[in-house]
C-alpha cells in the first residue's frame, strides 16, 4: 500500500518585467481621452503613471525585453508557457496580410515559438495560454508546476506574459488604469527565491459577459472564496499569511478584502502601483520584482498572490520565501 504522493518541491524565481516605452501621467492620459474615469478618481484609486507602447513596440517586444532582464537564467528552460490576457496578443502575424490573402497562417505566428527560437531554447516545448485574462501569469505558474510534477526530465519552465492594447483602445478596464507590459519568471525544481506551496483557480464561465457592475458584485465574494479555498488546500489560515501581493487595483478594494479575510491591511503590498498601474496579468511578478529589490520579504514568510480577471477567473498562488 502506498501513501499519498509527495510532490518534489517547486520554486518560483527570477522576476522580471518590461513596460511600454511611453510613460504618461494620469492627468495626461485622462486629458487625451483614453479613460472613462476622471483624473481625480484614478489618482484617488492610487494610480499616478502608466506605460504605453509606442507604435513600433509589439507585445512580443515586451516579452523579449522582460525575459532579457533575467539574463542567462532563462537558458536551459525545458518549457515556455507564454500567457496573454488578450488573445490577439497570442499572434504576432500581420492581420492585414490575412485580410489580403485569406490565409490563416498569418493568424498563427505564435510569439512563444519566436521566443523559443530567439532564446535558442531548442529543446524547450512551448505552450500558449490566452483565455485567463489578468490571471494568466498565475495560471502559467500553475501549468508549469504541473509540467514539472509530471515530466521527470523537466527542471525549469519559463513563464512569460505580455500584452499591449491595440491602437485606439481605452487604457482603463474595470476602473483600473492599464499599462502595456510583460512579466517573466521561472518555475523550477532547483531551490529558488520562493517555494510554491499551492495554486488555486476558480472560474465562473457564466459570467464571461459580465458587465462592470456584475464584475464588482462578484469580485469580493469570489476573491474571498478563492483565498479561503487556496489556504485550505495546504491547511493554512489567513493568519499565517505574512504578505499579500495582489493585482494593482483600487487601493480601497484590498483594504476591504483584507478586513474580510482578517489580514492586516498593512500586509498588502503593491509597491509598483503608482508607477506602473495595472500591468494586466503581470502585476504580481512586477510587485515581486520590486519587493525583491527592497528585500521586504524575509525567509520563511508566506506570500499570497491573488488576481481576478475576465472570464470570469480568479487565481491565487501561495509562496514561501526560501
Amino acid at each position: 500500500m502506498s501513501g499519498p504522493r509527495t510532490l518534489e518541491p517547486v520554486y518560483v524565481d527570477d522576476f522580471c518585467f518590461s513596460l511600454g516605452h511611453r510613460k504618461l501621467s494620469v492627468e495626461d492620459t485622462v486629458a487625451a481621452g483614453h479613460t472613462r474615469t476622471d483624473a481625480a478618481g484614478l489618482l484617488d484609486a492610487g494610480f499616478r503613471y502608466h506605460h504605453v507602447c509606442d507604435d513600433e513596440q509589439s507585445s512580443y517586444d515586451l516579452a523579449a525585453a522582460a525575459v532579457a532582464g533575467m539574463g542567462d537564467r532563462s537558458s536551459g528552460a525545458d518549457a515556455i508557457v507564454y500567457a496573454t490576457c488578450l488573445p490577439l496578443n497570442g499572434n504576432v502575424g500581420d492581420v492585414a496580410r490575412f485580410d489580403r490573402s485569406k490565409d490563416v497562417k498569418h493568424l498563427m505566428d505564435y510569439p512563444a515559438s519566436r521566443l523559443q527560437a530567439d532564446l535558442g531554447l531548442d529543446d524547450a516545448i512551448v505552450l500558449g495560454l490566452n483565455q485567463q485574462a489578468c490571471t494568466s501569469m498565475l495560471g502559467s505558474i500553475r501549468v508549469a508546476r504541473g509540467l514539472l510534477a509530471t515530466e521527470p526530465d523537466m527542471r525549469r519552465v519559463l513563464c512569460v506574459t505580455a500584452d499591449r492594447f491595440p491602437p485606439g483602445a481605452l487604457y482603463e478596464q474595470a476602473y483600473n488604469l492599464i499599462s502595456d507590459g510583460a512579466a517573466a519568471c521561472t518555475v523550477t525544481k532547483d531551490v529558488g527565491a520562493y517555494k510554491l506551496l499551492a495554486a488555486h483557480q476558480v472560474t465562473n464561465g457564466a459570467m464571461v459577459t459580465a458587465d462592470d457592475d456584475e464584475t464588482v458584485g462578484a469580485y469580493f465574494s469570489y476573491t474571498h472564496r478563492l483565498v479561503t479555498e487556496l489556504l485550505a488546500k495546504v491547511g493554512r489560515t489567513a493568519g499565517e499569511v505574512d504578505w499579500v501581493v495582489p493585482q494593482n487595483t483600487n487601493a480601497k478594494a484590498w483594504q476591504i478584502l483584507a478586513r474580510l479575510l482578517a489580514i492586516p491591511a498593512d500586509r498588502v503590498l503593491c509597491p509598483s502601483m503608482p508607477d506602473v498601474a495595472h500591468v494586466i496579468s503581470g502585476d504580481n511578478v512586477v510587485n515581486l520584482a520590486y519587493l525583491t529589490a527592497s528585500n521586504v520579504v524575509q525567509p520563511g514568510q508566506v506570500v499570497l498572490l491573488v488576481m481576478a480577471g475576465y472570464g470570469m477567473n480568479w487565481q491565487g498562488v501561495l509562496l514561501e520565501k526560501a
Binding site: 476602473y175 462592470d212 465574494s221 469570489y222 483600487n250 480601497k252 478594494a253 476591504i256 478586513r259 474580510l260
Partner: peptide, 26 residues
C-alpha cells in the same frame, strides 16, 4: 450565474465600500 451569497462585512469594511465604491464600481 453561480452568484455567491454576499459576504457579511463589519461596519468599517462596509463603510470603506460605501466611501470607495465610486472608484471601482458603476
Amino acid at each position: 450565474k453561480r452568484i455567491l451569497r454576499p459576504l457579511l462585512a463589519d461596519e468599517e469594511s462596509f463603510d470603506l465600500m460605501v466611501d470607495g465604491v465610486t472608484g471601482f464600481a458603476g
